[in-house]
Each structure stands twice: as structure tokens, then as C-alpha cells.
Design a protein around this nucleic acid. Structure first.
Lengths: 226, 226
DNA sequence: CCGATGGTTCGGCCGGCGACGAACCATCGC
DNA sequence: GCGATGGTTCGTCGCCGGCCGAACCATCGG
């Protein structure tokens, strides 16, 4: 009958103000970096790191590494429901709040993510390619279908060059601005190169922003994200 | 901006092992005296008194004075649901606690979830009722169908009394042991009362276990979960 | 290769909270 | 009225855990 302590462990974890802030911030369903979470919790990075380690340890949150960033999100829907339930009960003596984070619109729309396209357009393209069966997604893995190979050839994307390198052809990559996936890997890089090569877009100096021309954006969406 | 702390307050309250023990004990739906609670929490009366004062202060529990006794119970069903939710999340995260307890299998099979039936039997009944069109599920909501009303009348379940109260007739409740839904709400309570009333089962003292007789279990399954 | 930035680990400080002893109020049975 | 039992309040003590500074590793951009 000693399940008391086990629920106490989880509850006390949520019971720390800092961690509660973190979890509340993650209720938006978006994945956030450790630094961002440190900011919302209003404590230093070290402290946040400790909190996140504990939350990870009890599987309340999950993490996805990407480059030097670590994106944290709620482990699953059950945790979200628990928090929801908690907020309901807490409501009787508390106030409500909302969280928003304004960012540079241009960056949100299209930017380089290492060597491939991220932002709204990147996500749109990814969704489009999955939707028309060019890419097939299985869990965390994504791959180019037979149909996708034809598709690439038709659009003049150099698959041979892309396959030559040792890195994976396709990978999914989490987008910080929309918190959704977009296409990475050598194919993702080839696609971005394709955009530059056709004069659809060019990089803005000293920034990660990718500036599409009006025609370029139209072309991209038309071909890859109808 | 201070919503985090407000859920933190509630969570940290539950997060203390002693208080968690108290709340878990109250999940049985019965009101218990302070001394009894001191015993289950395994601390002195003074300490328990302090805990109960805090729980009262945040409306997690309610008290009813009767002579020189004070009977404490969970404040309402929302709190009960929160605790169930917590147990669900705690279960997979926490270390394997006391899996050796002989009571554990019995708890898994049938137990009281505040005022209705949970555990394998609870889930089985719920599935059976949904399966034969007595209940209709839509998203998170569940309701009694026209056919279901007839069904209840035929089996002698007092729908009028159940509908009289202000609480919802049907609700689904997530089961921490099987991670599936069972029936809550006043109909769920009426159903459990039905089991007790027909001598199919009775409560085990000092535990949430509902002990069904062999005949009672047969009767329940036969009628509600064929 | 170098600086800048994201993130974690380590060690030590310090406040808050839970624990109990003791004393105090309330109610019961007589 | 009496003792006995249920329950709370008060004061004190000790420890757990959150917090930060500093140092360290990893990755990116050039």
C-alpha cells in the first residue's frame, strides 16, 4: 500500500516553483531549450540543468538533442493531463497567466538551419513532401520513397551527389520557431542549394535569414508544398 | 505570471510523503479521523494536525466535526481525479515499489476509486458497456444512450437518484494500473453501490480493495461485461 | 585554430519545512 | 465534578534540497 511515497516523488518534483514554471511553459506543447527554460523559471542555467535532469529522470519531460541545443518537451500526453488537472485544482486560489515569445518574423519564416531550410517554409515543404508520399515517416526516422526518387529526378535535384556523402540522406530536424519538424540530412541540404541555385532565394548577410523572392517562394511552394 | 507557483503550491503539498500517504488513504472515499490518518502516515498527531491544516487551507480535503472526532475526506472529485492521474504518471516513473505486496494483485483487480469501481473489473465493465452500446464515447465525453437507459432500468439501477445529484451522470476516469478508462460519475457510483447492495462484493477494511465473491464476480461480468 | 555560446558537473552556502516534546483546549463516559 | 482520549498550538532542532559561482565539455561560426 506504499504507493504514497511514489506519488509524493512526482508531486514534489512538480512542487518546486522553478520546475513548475518549466513544466507550465512546456504545456504549450512546444519544445524549448534549456536556456529558454532557465529564463522562464528565472534561475541560472546550472540550476535549470539540475531541474531538467530530475524531470528527465522521472520521465516527466523528454529531450531531443540538436547540435548544441537540447530541446525539452513534456514526456507525453499523460503528463500534460496531470498538469491540466493540477491547474484545475490550483485554480481555486490562484491566478491565470499566459506565455508568449515574440521573435523576428523574418527568421520565423525562413532561415538556414546548419545547411538546410528551417522556419515556416521549411516546415511547409516537409509537410508537403510527406503528404504526397515523397517522404515516409516511421517514428523518428524519415526516408525517401521510390516515388520520392522519381520526384527528385524530375525536379533536378542531384541525388547522386547527395547520397555520396557519409551523412544520412534524410533526417528530421526540430524547428525552434514552430516546434515542428523539417527536413535535414544531405537531401535537405541539396534542397536548400536548389533554392539558391535557381535564384529563388539568397542569404541575408550576417544573419541566418533566407530571403525568398516573391517568385521564388511561389515556385518553392508550388513544387514542394502544394 | 504566477501560475507556476500556484500549481507548485498544490503539488508541493501533495509532494510530502506524509501528506501523500494521507491523501492516498482518503482515496478510499471514506472519511477518516485525524488519529487514523496519523497512523497511516506514520507520524505523530501533532505533525498530522499540521498537515491536515495545510490541506484544509488549500481545499484539498474537507472536514466534518462529529463529537470529539473530526472526519477528514477529500474535498471533492477533482482532487480524487488529480490523485489518480498522479498515480498513473508515478507508476511508470517510480521505482518498482512493493510489488511483492500480496494486496497489490487484489488492488489491480478491483478497487474503489473514490466512489466507483476501478481496476481490471472496472475496465472490463466499462468496455462491455461501450461495446454493447449502453454508453457512447465521443472524445473525452461519455454518455448514456437511450438503449443504455433501458438497460439500467432492466438491471434495477436507480437512474433517478443518480441523475438527481448535480454531478455528471457519466464520466470516464483513467485507471492507473491498467492505463485504460473506466466509468466514473454518479452512474459509476450507482453501479458500485449496486454491487454492494446485491452482496456481490464488499470492501476490505483499511484498504481500497473491493473483494468480489465468486458468484458476485460472475454476476457482474455476465450482466455488464459479456 | 580561436572565441562565443549552449549546457552540465562540482562544491558549498543557506533557508524552509517537517519532525517531535510539551502544554493546552474540547468532548466523552461516569 | 473527575480522568481519559481526540485534536491543536507553540517552540525548537536538524536536515534536505534549491541556489549560485566556478570550472568544464560540446558545438558552432569564422
Amino acid at each position: 500500500m506504499k504507493d504514497g511515497p511514489s506519488i509524493a516523488r512526482v508531486a514534489s518534483l512538480i512542487g518546486d516553483p522553478g520546475r513548475a514554471e518549466i513544466l507550465t511553459a512546456l504545456m504549450g506543447g512546444q519544445a524549448l531549450t534549456a536556456t529558454e527554460l532557465a529564463h522562464v523559471a528565472d534561475v541560472t542555467k546550472q540550476t535549470t540543468s539540475g531541474h531538467l535532469a530530475k524531470l528527465l529522470d522521472t520521465r516527466l519531460v523528454a529531450v531531443e538533442r540538436q547540435g548544441r541545443h537540447r530541446y525539452y518537451r513534456l514526456a507525453d500526453r499523460d503528463v500534460a493531463q496531470l498538469l491540466e488537472s493540477l491547474m484545475g485544482v490550483a485554480q481555486r486560489a490562484g491566478a491565470v497567466r499566459l506565455a508568449t515569445s515574440p521573435r523576428e518574423p523574418a527568421l520565423r519564416k525562413a532561415r538556414v538551419c546548419y545547411d538546410h531550410l528551417a522556419g515556416d517554409l521549411g516546415v511547409m515543404v516537409y509537410d508537403g513532401m510527406v503528404g504526397r508520399g515523397v517522404l515516409s515517416v516511421e517514428g523518428n526516422a524519415v526516408e525517401l520513397t521510390r516515388k520520392g526518387e522519381r520526384f527528385c529526378r524530375e525536379h533536378g535535384i542531384d541525388l547522386e551527389a547527395a547520397s555520396a556523402s557519409r551523412r544520412p540522406l534524410c533526417r528530421m530536424c526540430l524547428d525552434w520557431s514552430v516546434r515542428r519538424h523539417h527536413l535535414a540530412g544531405s537531401l535537405g541540404a541539396a534542397l536548400l542549394a536548389h533554392c539558391f541555385g535557381h535564384g529563388w532565394a539568397k542569404r541575408v548577410k550576417g544573419s541566418r535569414v533566407v530571403a525568398f523572392t516573391a517568385a521564388g517562394e511561389r515556385a518553392l511552394v508550388e513544387r514542394f508544398a502544394p
